[in-house]
């Protein structure tokens, strides 16, 4: 048997909550840091698209994507309150302690995408896991050609990271296109599903040498994929990040397995070409 010391992969490290920012209804961003500065330095080596396991002791543990880019000074999670663990996180106040382990997963191969156009398509809180790549791409905008962000939500109140989207647009490195399913008072923008933005007058989506990042609810995913394929995108140039019920994050507990892949260690990032071959519906 392996004589080298085995690390305890289930052991989380204590983290301290710094501040909480309200994003949209039931979704908040939690800025935090590790109690141990060495752990913080080590953790900051994460890649865009990876995730971490967040522990609320006495309640449980849940996987959360990492929306910050590694280059950003602060680490944070953006989490919607859906179950008992996320609910417990939402009840924490600044200076409260919880615990984190990770980062896990493969992440997006951003280096491989050098010299390409990047198209981000996000439905609702699907923008959260893509935020890391967007910020990474903005910081390395000389590595990439055009950067486009298409973001749709049910209502204008449910659009994610609105102020960041405005900043990215203002920087001149990215085009942002927003849409909502139902317009409310004061919404002067586009109305329709996110795929309808591709055909909006004045919008041209490059297909050659382009990577499309897609993340959102299953129904949105299905239609956006259909649109992208119809536009001529190759299956291997469409990437997404999947989610599943997950307990361990390290390929042992068996919950997140879809077909032949463990989302936690083989993913969560897959190309559409891979997703199709998993052998099970996503």
């Amino acid at each position: 048997m392996n004589p080298s010391r085995t690390e305890n992969v289930y052991l989380p490290k204590v983290a301290i909550l710094d501040r909480v920012v309200e994003d949209i209804a039931e979704v908040r961003t939690f800025y935090w840091h590790f109690e141990d500065p060495a752990a913080q330095t080590e953790f900051k080596r994460f890649r865009p698209g990876q995730f971490a396991q967040v522990s609320l002791f006495g309640v449980g543990e849940f996987p959360a994507s990492l929306p910050p880019s590694p280059a950003e000074p602060e680490t944070f999670f953006t989490v919607r309150q859906v179950g008992s663990c996320t609910g417990a996180l939402h009840r924490l106040k600044p200076h409260d302690r919880f615990a984190v382990r990770g980062p896990y997963g493969n992440g997006f191969p951003m280096e491989q995408y050098r010299g390409k156009n990047l198209v981000f398509v996000a439905g609702g809180i699907g923008l959260i896991p893509l935020r890391s790549c967007i910020v990474y791409a903005m910081n390395h905008c000389d590595h990439y050609r055009r950067i486009q962000i298409f973001h749709g939500a049910k209502t204008p109140e449910e659009l994610m990271y609105l102020s960041s989207l405005r900043d990215w647009e203002k920087s001149g490195h990215a085009e942002c296109h927003l849409t909502v399913d139902r317009a409310c008072n004061g919404w002067g923008g586009h109305v329709g599903v996110v795929g309808s933005l591709f055909k909006k007058p004045g919008v041209s989506v490059p297909v050659e040498d382009t990577i499309a990042f897609v993340c959102g609810p299953p129904i949105m995913f299905r239609f956006v994929i259909r649109d992208l394929l119809a536009m001529g995108f190759e299956e291997r140039n469409i990437v997404s990040t999947l989610e599943r019920y997950m307990k361990c994050g390290v390929g042992k507990c068996g919950h997140c397995c879809i077909g032949t892949a463990y989302i936690c260690v083989d993913g969560p990032v897959f190309t559409y070409e891979q997703i199709k071959k998993l052998g099970e519906d996503i």
Binding site: E61, K247, C253, H255
Partner: peptide, 16 residues
């Protein structure tokens, strides 16, 4: 396959 659960075992103590 396994699942992971937290449970309270004392006033200030939980176990996973």
């Amino acid at each position: 396959c396994f699942t992971v659960s937290d449970r309270r075992v004392g006033p200030n103590e939980t176990e996973r």
